[in-house]
Design a protein around this nucleic acid. Sequence first.
RNA 1: GCCCGGGUAGCUCAGUGGAUAGAGCAGAAGUUUCCUAAACUUUUGGUCGGAGGUUCAAUUCCUCUCCCGGGUACCA
Length: 623
Amino acid sequence: MPKKKPRWCGPRYNQRPLTEVKKNTIMNFKCVSDLSSFLQQQYPAVSFPAAWQVVGDKCPGNMSGDLTINCFRFARLFRQAPDAMAREVAAFLAGHDDVETAEAVKAFVNITLRPGAVHRDTVADPNRILGATIVPAARRRRILIEYSAPNTNKPQHLGHVRNNTLGMSLAALLQRVGHEVIPINLVNDRGIHICKSMIAYQRFGEGETPASSGIKGDHLVGKYYVRFNTELKRQLDALTQARPELADRSDEDLFLETELGAATQKMLQDWEAGVPVVRELWQLMNSWVFAGFAQTYARMGVKFAHTYLESETYLLGKDNILDGLARGVFSRRDDGAIIADLGKLGQKVVLRSDGTSVYITQDIGTTIRKYNDYHPDTQIWVVGDEQIHHFKMLFEILRRMGFSWADNLYHLAYGMVNLPSGKMKSREGTVVDADDLFAEMAALARAATLERCGDEIPADLDERAEIIGMGALKFMLLKFNPKTTMMFDPQASLKFEGDTGPYVQYAGARINSIAAKAAEKGLVISDDVNWELLAAPEEKALSIMASFYPATLAEAAEKMDCSVLVGYLLDLAKAFNRFYRECPVLSAEDDALRQARMQLCFRIRDLLTDGLNTLTIGVPAAM
RNA sequence: GCCCGGGUAGCUCAGUGGAUAGAGCAGAAGUUUCCUAAACUUUUGGUCGGAGGUUCAAUUCCUCUCCCGGGUACCA
């Protein structure tokens, strides 16, 4: 359906809301808001949209100026030619107290601000940026976010690490902007795949335990999962050799034909029947896995308000389906299966003809359970993009069942992680193990730290290496837009240069070092700062970059995309490193300048720290 | 077949209806008597998959088309 355009609007400029909050958008400079007021006074006949404001952008590097006003954006509103609009804007700004020069170039006005005005409107008041309200009270929500959702048959790998990182950082981000966030996990602790490790352990385990073997619990169980698959392969090969007519049938098709497969199936039935031996083994092995996961989570900093177990929720949903059937939401097919006819999304079986659940049955039940437990305004699932269709159907079904909250369900779909060698495949052993990866990152960070610290080995070496290694890993995973199918190159990822977490951490560490040196020299830090002194282009650029922080948080939260924040922190760190290079702080020419630069540094450090913490990344005291 | 992503520098990825499309890595050349060189500076490198259309302006929006990935289960 074609959108109707407002008549005065004609062509498409100006259809974008003028108040839109975007990264690299400045709205808090006095001269810009004065410009807005001025224009409204000059053109009383114009009907302005609510909360209309001129927005400034950062001036591109190839132009001279601090800020730029793009007059294409609003020239139409005033029925003016863009260039003429620019000249009018430039004339006003040129006469403004805060402005050194304002130059109209085509439809743009490039503004060079007085240094004092730049800093006054940005970093001078420490609360102005960090304390900015991101989401107004009226729009704050109670948000339930489910992520991680591991299976208890094997240890976590890089794919889980991406999920965990995305989930915990999104939770932290949403909380940072003012929402109430409840992070939860739903562990898949039952089912045929769990029985696979159990069967293999029963047959080949010989009583091995994490304690006796020294193997972390989840890895130990994973070892038997692998063992199961090799054993199954052996049986499948034997089967097709003995009965060549089966050769063209798939492995899954032949699963129950094998002795091992049949035994696994039997074990699942025994589990459901509550056979004590099976339940005990299940309890035991799951307890090993949970202990292992707890370590992995602790190392990443993952925390949940609650962990749901599928063994406790897998029977949910059936009653809801039957209820929906009675109310005409679903229908019964000739073969007895209960289906939902979802139109464009297709037909979906929601209860099998034998009355048992399918995946979506459980999800319906669990979603309702989660709603009843927490009454959130919004539920978010961090789940891979191969389940996009599943979630669309789930949401549509809940909508049809009449749940008013079903419009506020959101699937954060993220792409797979590939390796240079191709896809990660558990069966082919090409997965990158989470714990190994953490250890490797920390070891590299440790080596790099040792290399640069000389003879003085820091007392907190291991802790520092952990913060840097984990920071590098998380940052790398968050740098990509969640939906991109990303490539993880182990070699390249283990570097700490360029667009990396350590680059940002390093900027913070440099400021820490300045603070430490200042204390050593007994310098008094004064709050009484003459910001006019910070007139270097690097100083102005740094403050202007700092001012984007609230808008960046807003955009990241709105899009539920931490990569927006990652990109910003890289820009901010880069602006700081340029400043650091050009503007000596402790050895500044005089005390007034030194004080001003120190204060600027501390404001930037606060932002870097807050930003990294919002990504669940720490900042080491020194690097 | 149908549905959903994606195709931008050698590689990995940003980005946008507006000024000369960016970053990191890789390649080339520099910077340390001075607060940390995990840094900084300069430089090489692009028909933004292809073709039409809308627009004053398209890499960005629309249509068609070609390639890649995923989905399309009484699997999870």
